[in-house]
Amino acid sequence: MALAKVRWGMIGCGDVTEVKSGPAFQKVKNSELVAVMRRTGELAKDYARRHMVRKWYDDADALINDPEVDAIYIATPPSSHKEYAIKAAKAGKPVYVEKPMALTFAECNDMIAACKAAEVPLYVAYYRRAQPKFIKIKELLESNEIGDVRFVSTTYYQKAAEDISNKQNQPWRITPELSGGGLFFDLGCHTIDLLDFLLGPIKDVQGFASNQAGDYQAEDIVTGIYQFDSGVHGVGSWCFSAFESIDVNEIIGSTGKITFSTFGSEPVLLTTASKMEQWEFPAIEHVHQPLVERIVTDLTNGFNQAPSTGVTGARTSWVMDKLVGN
């Protein structure tokens, strides 16, 4: 049954919700953020006040079961994604969950099963799938601008994060029991998911993961090879303790290549034997907004067209598990 308007309840009020996601629920047509929850009630109350949200909770069950909440956005660390997603599904409410989808591929499957049993949709916040930059790349591929795709390469490395020096109080993103792994799970997942979006599912994966710098428990370098269902090959390397920062992907075809970054503002570059073209895309203030628009359209019109679902999100988790040896 389609909703006239999607009234969202948000579990978790961390940094990602301040600009990237939270305001999008207020700005999209036929959408409203009506309730937020954080375990520390005063922080939930403060978020609600600053973002003009009518209700706040310090108990997730109370938010999930609020009759004025139609759909649940889970913006907590991955360690609680499965728990909250299953509770939301049992309450009959659509779920939009942050990435990575869960701690493991097995947990992703549990979430998919729960939502299927409850007949509610499950979406994952791989929001780049709905952004114009990556839709343009997909259009270039589908219009055969580089001929038959042969392989894709990813090189991503960055300096060691400054907030890891205090080993007694390290960020949850590099604490495996909370995040599923290290920064590869937090950042690398975006590229793995984009490759699925652009080139289709990956069917075979081999990888190596190590902790070279010893700054924290999780892996800080991941290198892998993969093959897509289509026969396209891929290779990727992610390092989080290097001397500088690099973010580049290249999709190589029989007649050209497409070069782009996952996170940067560099233009998308098309290179063939006869031409070189590029496209620039302005920064998006609320990066979730294009995907939230697609999700709200689904929920208010009875469609099933949003590009990032539990099924696609689980595929990304499967690839990451394989690359790090889980």
Rank of each mutant, 00 (worst) to 15 (best):
R7W: 09
G9E: 03
D15W: 02
T17L: 11
F25Q: 07
Q26W: 01
K27D: 13
K29S: 02
E32I: 09
E32S: 13
E32V: 13
A35V: 06
G41K: 09
L43P: 00
L43V: 05
R49T: 14
H51S: 12
M52G: 00
V53S: 09
V53D: 12
N65T: 13
D66M: 13
V69F: 09
A75V: 01
A75Q: 03
P77E: 06
S80L: 12
S80M: 10
H81Y: 04
A85K: 06
I86Y: 06
K87D: 09
A88K: 03
G92H: 12
K93P: 12
K93L: 11
V97E: 02
E98M: 01
A102M: 08
E107P: 02
C108R: 01
I112R: 10
A117D: 15
E119F: 00
P121L: 03
Y123V: 02
R129P: 01
A130T: 13
I135S: 05
K138M: 11
E139W: 00
S143F: 04
E145I: 01
E145M: 14
G147D: 07
G147K: 10
V149K: 01
F151H: 12
T154D: 10
T154L: 10
Y156I: 15
A160V: 07
A161K: 10
D163Y: 04
I164W: 11
K167Q: 12
Q168D: 15
I174Y: 07
G180T: 05
L183C: 03
F184N: 09
D186F: 08
D186Q: 06
L187G: 00
L187P: 00
H190W: 07
T191W: 07
I192A: 08
D196W: 10
L198M: 12
L199C: 10
V205A: 03
G207R: 12
F208C: 11
F208P: 00
D220Y: 14
V232R: 05
V232T: 14
S237T: 15
C239F: 11
F240L: 07
F240K: 09
A242G: 15
F243K: 15
E244H: 08
E244D: 14
S245D: 02
S245V: 01
I246Y: 13
D247E: 07
N249W: 02
I251P: 08
S254V: 06
T255M: 11
G256F: 10
F260G: 00
G264R: 06
G264Q: 06
G264N: 08
S265L: 08
E266S: 14
P267M: 07
P267H: 13
V268F: 05
V268W: 05
L270N: 10
L270C: 10
M276P: 00
M276I: 02
M276F: 00
E280D: 14
P282V: 04
H288M: 03
Q289T: 02
T300H: 04
T300D: 01
N304G: 00
Q305P: 06
Q305A: 15
P307D: 04
S308H: 09
S308K: 07
G310N: 14
T312E: 05
A314E: 08
V319Q: 03
V319R: 05
M320S: 05
D321N: 15
D321Q: 14
D321V: 08
K322F: 14
V324D: 10
